[in-house]
Design a protein around this nucleic acid. Structure first.
Lengths: 398, 398
DNA sequence: AATACATAGTCTATATCTTGAAAAAAGTCA
DNA sequence: TGACTTTTTTCAAGATATAGACTATGTATT
């Protein structure tokens, strides 16, 4: 009930430092003057804090800009090579590892194919660990500058050092991925559900930018969602919030991969849609088969859009977002052909007021969004707490 | 993206003051010593801040307690008569106005019946305003000590001074209740959806106590929900979040009062259940008829429980709460007879992991919960910002 | 009764912090 | 060169939390 946040005068500086750094990160090259407006801090404080950050080499100067007949403004920006973040995407068909600088430029990449249906824990762990070593070596980044590793995985990820994972459709039941990975890598770890990391990527760099309340719907073979409440990924009590795919849209309806009946995923997940249409496929032909089906205008697709619209309407009614981002490869295929119809079906199934204030848009990031989003977990942590670095500052020489 | 919270040293004090006051409010009579543990503040700061609060008469001493052979502890508590809050419940059949002290003792009450289906705006507004005057007069509380008025109403309440209300089932479409009430009363106003105010009452004083992530389901003639995320009522972008009753549980299913089809409310709302069972009733006999039906073990009730279980499962999958509180008169009737079955149906329709960490319990507050919760809106605001009162403090005499 | 001990609460000195105002820096313009 | 403009830094003032010393107020023991 009580939430003690900032207590001492020093926490004040820590907080203001974080606020300023975050503003600088998202606003790009910016002058101290503009930062006063962006952060609400006084010019004096901005000067103090930026001074600290410059001394720590966390931010750097980035050129000058003329002012109308006065002293030119010095632009500041986050030092993109102050540190680096690794993002890992554990998917149904692959393990993908990428290394980014703080500007989220991809500096190295390593990918491993998974045999369909074969997601043995030790294989995946080995791929992740060798991938990390590979991208660090390939990029030439000194290990001391790697801020951490972000990992996006299917299923429910419990918070805590163990990072216990429950992923029925993936064949993982109570896998302590955090413990397993920590044994093989010295870097700080951040593990989260893949739909949530993709959601954060869309919020930071994609279709979600600028909104504080959003839902990112991830529709692929399976179905997930990431809920952004007041700018922050909503996790719930045990970090399993957002399991949209297994909400019931029909009592006693179609069977689902999760073992239940009537799940939304059983109607709009690509795998289920292809099954409903009676189309044979395997993992490698799934996307092409689905694309053909969508283009064909089959009645199965009509029905799928009806269910998708209702599913989105439920999200709008429950979460009242400003924006819904439809993502995932299947979601993008459906959206590219049928966004108008999807919106119409959503409107039919939604209360007027919340529907009218929500916009439904398509995701803008490609297939690397999960890994990118995983890396943003590391950056997010970095932006929050860069204070440890400045602990051993020496008194200024006068 | 940037959330500047505390900036200056003064904000620090304001924040710590609020933290301490809130701790004191919810922990009840407590010594300064215990408050250091509860708030994380140092003994010196607790002493300072409590000194301020005592001087402002916001808190008072409440007796002594022996310590094991040392100086006895002085117990402190919030001064229950420092201020008073009015709660208003606008329901389908009545307008209820109650006045509470800060301990939430009811000091006065005023109630007006509404003719079934007759919710003319001006009538309701007049009832509210005369009710406020009546409870203030009856209680003998000086108007200067009334901290504000909380109002719980059906439908969607937009934030902002107008407090525009959209309540299709109530016959209100874009009613600026805030503007209308402000013209007739000088007190600060807080207007919110009734399901949300009831939810806050259950969180503060009822079955929700102690949980940070919870959903309070309100099942009466209609169906609503209040979502508590991280201890705070989740409102979404435009404060309409939590419209659980109109989420779709069946594509193209039964017609609903909202004009849509397949809404959950059309299956578990008391009005809809009675209709499905083919029972004639009017507003005054509804509750009795529903109670009889529940007791009869009719197949309609079996079906209702099935839908209710699925609806709760959807909430658990999406929000991952620690606790679900089933409230509202119809919800309580169903729960009292059939809680085990409801839980079982929820389990069948929910992912294992989130279900296993969520407990489903019955609401513990009576019919006054909406008004009580509305009054807590006022108290909540009071606990956050009592600083204005202490602006004109004089320097202490030495 | 005097003394020792224990616990609660307050006071003081100190190190920080943010800020407004003044000063300095770094340009343009005439 | 000097007036002017705009950005950034410096400085003094005011406010805060904290550690640790100190005071207050009991019980237990001698």
């Amino acid at each position: 009930m009580v939430r003690p946040e900032r207590r001492t005068v020093r926490d004040l500086r820590r907080g203001n430092r974080a606020v300023l750094l975050r503003a600088l990160y998202f606003a790009g090259p910016t002058s101290r003057h503009e930062l006063t407006a962006l952060t609400g801090l006084s010019a004096a404080t901005v000067s103090n804090v930026t001074g600290d950050l410059l001394a720590d080499n966390i931010i750097i100067e980035a050129g000058l800009v003329d002012s109308d007949g006065g002293r030119p403004r010095v632009l500041l920006r986050v030092n993109p090579t102050y540190g680096f973040a690794v993002g890992v995407d554990v998917g149904e068909t692959h393990v993908r590892v990428e290394l980014f600088d703080l500007d989220m430029n991809e500096l190295a990449k390593s990918e491993f194919a998974l045999r369909p249906g074969a997601h043995e824990v030790d294989v995946v762990v080995r791929h992740i660990l060798t991938g990390i070593e590979a991208v660090v070596a390939d990029s030439g980044v000194p290990p001391s500058k790697v801020l951490g590793i972000g990992v996006g995985v299917p299923g429910i990820v419990e918070r805590g050092p163990e990072a216990m994972i429950h992923a029925q459709t993936f064949g993982w039941d109570s896998v302590p991925l955090g413990t397993l990975l920590r044994a093989g890598t010295p870097f700080p770890l951040h593990i989260d559900n893949g739909a949530k990391t993709m959601g954060q990527a869309e919020m930071w760099f994609g279709a979600g930018r600028g909104s504080r309340h959003a839902v990112i719907a991830l529709i692929g073979s399976g179905v997930g969602a990431s809920i952004i409440a007041d700018g922050v990924t909503y996790r719930g009590a045990n970090s399993s919030a957002g399991e949209w795919g297994h909400t019931k849209i029909a009592i006693g309806g179609r069977g689902c991969r999760c073992g239940g009946r009537g799940c939304l995923e059983a109607y709009i997940g690509a795998e289920a849609v292809l099954e409903r249409a009676g189309i044979d496929f395997n993992t490698s032909t799934e996307q092409a088969a689905f694309a053909d089906l969508v283009a064909s205008g089959s009645p199965v697709i009509e029905e799928t859009v009806e269910y998708l619209g209702a599913g989105l309407a439920n999200l709008i009614n429950l979460f009242n977002p400003e924006r819904i981002v439809v993502g995932g490869w299947a979601g993008l295929l459906l959206g590219q052909h049928l966004l108008t119809t999807i919106k119409q079906k959503a409107a039919e199934n939604c209360l007027t007021q919340p529907y009218s204030t929500a916009s439904i848009v398509l995701g803008r990031l490609g297939p690397d969004a999960v890994a990118l989003g995983a890396a943003t977990l590391v950056v997010d942590e970095f932006l929050l707490s860069t204070t440890s670095a400045s602990v051993s500052r020496e008194p200024a020489v006068s």
